[in-house]
């Protein structure tokens, strides 16, 4: 246990949206090399937790603590969290008209490396990652997410993750809207990214992504609490039996991993 290196850890996190508490005390630690999955029905608060951790201004963390590599992130702006190594793949990535994927990607990478940093390797890197994800090069000059299909958007999210190489990637419903081929490509991208030095938090309603991206731990979220934790077998059980059987007996339990 002593060799475990915590990357993202949060303790008793509460989240409010428009004055309503949607996350009610969640505790979790993700160590280097680990993949966690938070599963739960719609409205369980799992997406709100993701948004709040990334720093969305409408999702306020009202109580608790959150640390990225030992440093508190609660006072950081979203861009600072990103540069510190946190990444959120959006459930609904936004369109930015007039801004090409390449231009955006370049600006993002530049902001991570610093204003004066050398970017001469950008094109090569960008092309290599597009190839790896099976993204047609025409996407480089298309406007970010404008007119993209659901699957295309998700692939571009994974592309961004691969380019920015965060320490912890939170993937919010990355499997939604994907057909089986796209799901496999995206999963391959996630697996290629994952190594002993980074951590992944998968946030998902369905189990199917977990067939391709193997989690080390699965947590069930209901009504703003993590109510049950287990290994990958828990996901299969949820698939068979749905969420209803996970009753609230473990509500408020702090999950130690």
């Amino acid at each position: 246990m002593s060799d475990k290196k915590p990357l993202l850890s949060f303790n008793d996190v509460h989240v409010e949206v428009e004055g309503k508490e949607v996350v009610r005390g969640v505790t979790l630690t993700i160590n280097a090399g680990e993949t966690h999955a938070i599963m739960g029905p719609n409205g369980s608060g799992k997406s709100s937790l993701s948004q709040a951790l990334m720093g969305h201004p409408s999702y306020a963390i009202t109580r608790g603590e959150a640390f990225l590599k030992g440093e508190s992130i609660l006072d950081m702006d979203p861009d600072e969290r990103s540069r510190a190594g946190l990444f959120l793949a959006f459930q609904y990535p936004l369109a930015i008209p007039g801004v090409t994927v390449a231009n955006f990607m370049r600006s993002a990478l530049q902001s991570h490396r610093g204003k004066d940093a050398d970017m001469s390797d950008f094109r090569k890197l960008f092309k290599a990652e597009m190839n790896a994800l099976g993204i047609d090069h025409v996407f480089a000059t298309r406007y970010l997410n404008e007119g993209f299909s659901g699957g295309e958007k998700k692939r571009i999210e994974i592309l961004q993750m691969a380019m920015l190489q965060p320490s912890v990637a939170i993937l919010d419903e990355t499997d939604s809207g994907l057909d089986i081929d796209a799901l496999k490509t995206v999963a391959e991208g996630i697996n290629r990214f994952h190594n002993d030095n980074n951590g992944i938090l998968l946030v998902t309603h369905y189990q199917r992504l977990l067939n391709y991206v193997k989690p080390d731990y699965v947590h069930v979220m209901k009504a703003g609490h993590l109510v049950k934790s287990g290994g990958p077998e828990l996901a299969l059980e949820l698939e068979d039996r749905g969420y209803d059987w996970v009753v609230g007996e473990e509500e408020n339990q702090k999950v130690e991993v």
């Binding site: 861009d79 959120l88 930015i96 600006s107 993002a108 902001s111």
Partner: peptide, 19 residues
């Protein structure tokens, strides 16, 4: 839109300029 761009590391000013 601003949140999306800043979550990728762009400062808010840079994000606004990009938009």
């Amino acid at each position: 839109q601003l949140f999306y761009l800043t979550s990728r590391g762009l400062t808010e000013d840079d994000a606004r300029l990009l938009i």
